[in-house]
Design a protein around this nucleic acid. Structure first.
Length: 332
DNA sequence: CTTAAAAACCGCCAAC
DNA sequence: ATGTTGGCGGTTTTTA
């Protein structure tokens, strides 16, 4: 996409990508904070700025933000035309009407091809602007019923952390916004840089968009899941080994059926699916930072043969390993 | 790209 | 009464 056209030569782009957050009266402070944290802070550890972050208010007067703050935007509307990404960090309420200026602004941006993202209830603003008909989106589970009623033409998937449908990226409750932002960094600059940003956030790994939302609930289900997180850590350390459901179940002392069920409850996805995703995310890092052949990588990561790696890679990332390497060859 | 065998997945349900 | 387990077998996905 964008990266391909803008950075044909050698490495990733050097011009910061312009990101604009729309702010409003009643701003949800936490969601805005996520965006500011990821796009707005300097990254001295990377030696250059990845993003040029601005905020724009479409309403006049002094704007309140949740928690008793008053906020003022950095820029006015005139910079929207040069924004490459516009983010709506939440919205003041599911029943709060979206003013025309918001709808007009977003429609115009969408037509220009600007990438548009929402966090949590921000999806109401995109929907009100009519950008989502026929699109697949997600939002916080507590809005699902209401949203479906109000916007029956939008395909809402309630169990995802975030969803990208062409130029529109929507995400679920607050912390899923972090995952979605990291996803965006990864699309723009590759997994290595995204991981470095994530590391500074003290988030260990980037979660895939299709992990179920309920694993966000902070209280881990029950005690026996400890065995699962232990197993997952061990698997990550030895991805090259051969595993089967039967052997994994045995190593946790559960029956196959119970193992499958507990694993899904714990991580939001089936065991082998999780394992291939782990293998794939490691494969991306190898592709970005080493010159190992696809054969060698598949060997190191337990894919069995390179064909399988290629197949899985294509299937989940929509790009072949070698093209991925061309696009994201590392150059921090 | 197609294909067939193998493996994984998951709803169902009787049994704790 | 409520919740978990684990085998069965049909369907989907993976592998080679």
């Amino acid at each position: 996409m964008e990266i391909m056209t803008k950075s044909q030569n050698a490495s990733v782009r050097l011009v910061p990508h312009k990101v604009v957050a729309l702010i409003y009266d009643g701003l949800t402070t936490f969601e805005f904070g996520i965006v500011a944290e990821i796009f707005g802070l300097p990254r001295p550890e990377l030696g250059r700025d990845l993003y040029d972050f601005r905020s724009v208010a479409l309403e006049s007067g002094s704007l309140r933000a949740a928690g008793g703050l008053l906020v003022k935007a950095t820029d006015n509307m005139s910079i929207l035309g040069s924004a490459e990404t516009i983010i709506v960090p939440g919205w003041r309420g599911k029943d709060s009407e979206v003013p025309e200026i918001f709808r007009k602004t977003l429609q115009a941006a969408y037509l220009r091809g600007t990438r548009i993202m929402s966090i949590c209830s921000g999806v109401y603003v995109l929907a009100a602007a009519g950008l989502l008909d026929g699109k697949t989106v997600t939002t916080h589970w507590r809005y699902v019923k209401d949203f479906k009623n109000k916007f029956p033409n939008v395909i809402l998937k309630p169990n995802e952390l975030y969803i990208q449908d062409e130029n529109i990226l929507t995400s679920a409750g607050s912390s899923a916004g972090i995952d979605a932002c990291l996803h965006m960094v990864r699309m723009d600059y590759g997994a290595t840089i995204a991981n470095s940003v994530a590391r500074r956030l003290v988030m260990h790994a980037h979660r895939q968009g299709d992990q179920a939302q309920y694993i966000e609930q902070p209280v881990p289900t029950s005690g026996g899941d400890h065995r699962l997180s232990l197993l997952m850590e061990n698997l990550r350390l030895e991805l090259d080994k051969v595993y089967s459901i039967t052997s994994l179940a045995a190593s946790t002392g559960m029956s196959v059926r119970t193992f499958q069920r507990r694993f899904v409850a714990f991580t939001g996805m089936a065991p082998m699916k999780w394992l291939t995703l782990e293998r794939l995310s490691q494969a991306r890092i190898f592709l970005e930072t080493t010159s190992l052949s696809v054969d060698e990588i598949s060997d190191k990561l337990g894919f069995g043969n390179a064909e399988t790696l290629r197949y899985q890679f294509r299937k989940t990332l929509d790009i072949s390993p070698s093209n991925y390497r061309k696009r994201f060859r590392c150059s921090i």
